[in-house]
């Protein structure tokens, strides 16, 4: 039988793998993919809590739907920014994006 602990440990593992990706990768596109992993970890946690704790209120599932909506908007905007960056700078390496530093 699946318990809440299973889901929460899975969610924590997914979140930490995403965290490693965000911290260690050099390509902006790969950082974006790792952020998607982290958002999915949050969704797994929300859905698990909605299924096991929240007595038939399923508020977690509704919030997960909104998280997916915001993730879709975020991916669209971020990829537009990355395209623009590639066109202006010829690179999506985040180590080289230091024009706002002084």
């Amino acid at each position: 039988m699946i318990t809440l602990v299973h889901l929460q440990v899975l969610s924590a593992g997914l979140f930490c793998i995403g965290l490693y990706g965000v911290l260690a990768r050099r390509s902006a596109v790969l950082i974006l993919l790792a952020i998607e992993l982290m958002l999915n970890a949050v969704n797994v946690n929300l859905v698990g809590l909605a299924a096991f704790v929240d007595n038939g209120q399923f508020m977690g599932q509704i919030i997960a739907i909104f998280v997916i909506t915001v993730a879709a908007a975020e991916v669209g905007l971020a990829l537009a920014i990355i395209l623009r960056l590639y066109r202006n700078r010829g690179s999506v390496n985040v180590d080289q994006l230091n024009m706002m530093k002084w």
Partner: peptide, 11 residues
Amino acid sequence: GIYLLVFAEFL
């Protein structure tokens, strides 16, 4: 697949 296992079929 995990959503299906906890009966969140819409998600």
